[in-house]
């Protein structure tokens, strides 16, 4: 039993140090012989036991005696612990692959593969001090009238709904990959703009006005706004240039942007978005799953097409495919 536990540990250590590789090889040989009911001839377990005893005896003879007498039992305990931690580590790896967090979807506890917790970071909307702040479990699209929001690739069977804002850095991180993923996977894509940052209200109104005039140009505008520096987003001069870039008349558009009715519409949309009980951007809905924070692209792809999404082809296509 000791050989198996040692093999697992030494294999990992062997990745980092050649010193452990030969020991891991001995352990493997020992394991292979044991599973075929042959005695271990390298003396690996004996060697390791002696080395361990040699170290322990210097500290405590009593502990060394206990270890010597109960080595097999302790090896079993050790094996179970190693097995347990291996299973736990494998689970963590799987969860990280599927959800972007070792501890499960939207779980913010420490994850060795994402030590800074970047996959769960959000731009907080000001909730104030609430007695029961919402959690990921509270998030829902039920009761939200999505028809009020622009949709890209309306013929798609599945749907990606992104709640975010132009000026939010984490939304900026995933907007383009999500839009591209939706295009590649033939899914509907809705962007629900919730200007968390006050300085992006101009962009919100501009987007609304462009959407009213030409839906195709609205998506082009989004690309421009997400590519722009955040400090430009509330700059009328930049808005004018963006309109010109889209071939729109700023004289006409500027009036729309300043129209209080447009701001009221933006506010109503924000009220509609608030029904989801979201608490930060980006929040992404795909099917029944909700993703809070900027997850790796594969996480969204798995949510759309399952664990083996890459077998269905796409290969990370960057085509717009509207």
């Amino acid at each position: 039993m000791f050989c198996i536990a040692a093999l697992l540990i030494l294999s990992v250590l062997g990745i980092f140090s050649a010193r452990y590789r030969s020991l891991a090889k001995d352990a493997l040989d020992c394991v292979l012989r044991r599973v075929t009911l042959r005695p271990c001839i390298t003396g690996f377990d004996e060697k390791m036991k002696s080395r361990i005893l040699g170290r322990v005896i210097n500290r405590s003879e009593r502990a060394a005696r206990f270890l010597n007498r109960n080595f097999e039992l302790l090896a079993w305990v050790f094996f179970i612990l190693v097995l347990g931690s291996t299973v736990y580590a494998a689970r963590g790896l799987y969860l990280f692959y599927v959800t972007g967090s070792c501890n499960g979807l939207n779980q913010e506890s420490f994850c060795v593969f994402d030590p800074k917790g970047e996959n769960n970071e959000v731009t907080d909307i000001s909730q104030g001090c609430k007695e029961n702040p919402p959690t990921a479990a509270d998030l829902t699209l039920k009761g939200v009238d999505l028809s009020r929001f622009p949709v890209c690739n309306p013929a798609g069977k599945k749907e990606i709904v992104l709640i975010g804002c132009y000026g939010c850095s984490y939304t900026r991180k995933i907007y383009a990959p999500l839009k591209e993923l939706a295009a590649a996977r033939g899914a509907r894509f809705r962007f629900l703009d919730y200007p968390v940052k006050v300085s992006t209200t101009l962009s919100a109104r501009l987007a609304e006005c462009v959407y009213r005039r030409d839906e195709a140009r609205y998506w082009q505008l989004n690309d421009i706004l997400f590519a722009a520096a955040p400090e430009q987003l509330d700059d009328p001069e930049f808005a004018g240039k963006a309109a010109m870039q889209l071939g729109l008349d700023w004289g006409d558009l500027g009036g729309c942007v300043e129209d209080p009715a447009v701001q009221a519409l933006v506010d109503r949309r924000m009220d509609e978005i608030a029904k989801t009980r979201f608490y930060g951007t980006p929040t992404v809905f795909i099917g029944n799953q909700v993703f809070v924070g900027p997850k790796p692209r594969r996480v969204y792809a798995i949510a759309l097409d399952g664990l083996f999404y890459w077998l269905k082809g796409d290969g990370g296509s960057r085509s717009e495919g509207r």
Binding site: K47, S50, L53
Partner: peptide, 8 residues
């Protein structure tokens, strides 16, 4: 075993 322990 004795030799290895002496070494350790």
């Amino acid at each position: 075993r004795i030799a290895l322990m002496l070494d350790q």
